[in-house]
Design a protein around this nucleic acid. Structure first.
Length: 293
DNA sequence: CGCGCTCCCTGGCCGC
DNA sequence: TGCGGCCAGGGAGCGC
């Protein structure tokens, strides 16, 4: 479940291999993931230089020298593995040069990128996605914020565009439970089920409370709680939870710091009340019925 | 338009 | 030991 911290961790893992490098070869094992790849996907990438690798919400964004941007979403189980062949391209197709990728099944390797580095070496990046909820797209770099994946997306929670006032304004008038509101990428970008549960716990707010009743005093607590839990998770290198591995194959440790998520029946870290599980908008919500009001 | 629900996809896990 | 069913969940789409 890569959410913002995990995607940021992946970005940091991929950036050294991608920024300033050229797509030397692109190959697809199938014509679609969650959605079909865009027309001539491989051709449009081949030869392009990666100018920057950034992130918006849960999306990875590679700005290219061609005027297009490569947009990548990891869905539920998407992972990137960086394979250094140590040689300049000739070895890239030699099976002996491929490093073993612990935990991955090659039958779910869907995309291969060969990236030619400034020093001429080739670094291979493999995208593996068991459930194929991830996808890739290309869009003109010019006007990207208004393109379909980003239009209407809420503020980046770790940027200056996010604050308690901004959050309160987005929640005002919403009758939906605060849990559902925070999962809505138009309210704030990058939160998923885990970090919404954790942020609500840290802010002492019940996931069942109407969003509009959070706007105000509780919103003053919620915005900092969101920022803090995301920062802590990024610092820990992202959580791993079942399917996730960082792009360099290492695992994060934030999962050990979950205070409510996936802890049904276990004692609340604050008051010892058993953590409750609740179904909301088709997802599980975990919360402390005593601490969260 | 806002809101809530289903679907997509696979593998891990649980109960029988 | 095998098998059926449930669960994980981000985002698109659809219906009310």
């Amino acid at each position: 479940m890569p959410e913002l911290p995990e995607v940021e961790t992946v970005r940091r893992g991929l950036a050294p291999a991608m920024e300033g490098a050229f797509f030397d070869r692109v190959s697809l094992a199938r014509s679609d993931l969650r959605f079909p790849f865009p027309d001539a996907f491989a051709d449009r990438l081949t030869g392009a230089k990666v100018l920057t690798l950034s992130r918006r919400g849960k999306y990875l964004i590679a700005a290219l020298s061609t005027g297009e941007t490569l947009i990548m979403h990891l869905g539920m189980t998407g992972r990137f593995t960086v394979l250094s062949t140590g040689q300049n391209g000739a070895d890239a197709t030699s099976p002996g040069e491929f490093h073993h990728k612990a935990g991955d099944d090659a039958k779910h390797d869907h995309v291969h990128f060969d990236l030619r580095q400034k020093d001429g070496t080739i670094v291979e990046i493999v995208y593996n996605d068991v459930r194929r909820f991830g996808f890739m797209d290309l869009a003109p770099t010019d006007g990207l914020p208004e393109s379909k994946h980003f239009r209407g997306m809420g503020p980046e929670p770790l940027s200056n565009e996010f604050s308690a006032d901004i959050l309160n304004a987005a929640l005002a008038g919403k009758a939906t439970p605060i849990k559902a509101a925070l999962l809505d990428q138009r309210v704030v970008a990058g939160l998923g089920n885990i970090y919404v549960c954790e942020a609500l716990f840290r802010a002492g707010i019940s996931p069942r409370r109407k969003a509009r009743s959070v706007a105000g005093k509780r919103g003053e607590r919620l915005a900092p709680a969101i920022i803090q839990v995301l920062r802590a998770a990024i610092d820990a290198g992202g959580s791993t939870l079942r399917d996730f591995a960082a792009s360099d194959g290492s695992l994060g440790y934030f999962q050990h710091a979950f205070q409510v998520y996936d802890r049904e029946g276990e004692p609340c870290v604050t008051c010892q009340t058993p953590v409750k599980r609740l179904g909301q908008s088709g997802r599980s919500t975990f919360y402390c019925p005593t601490c969260q009001r």
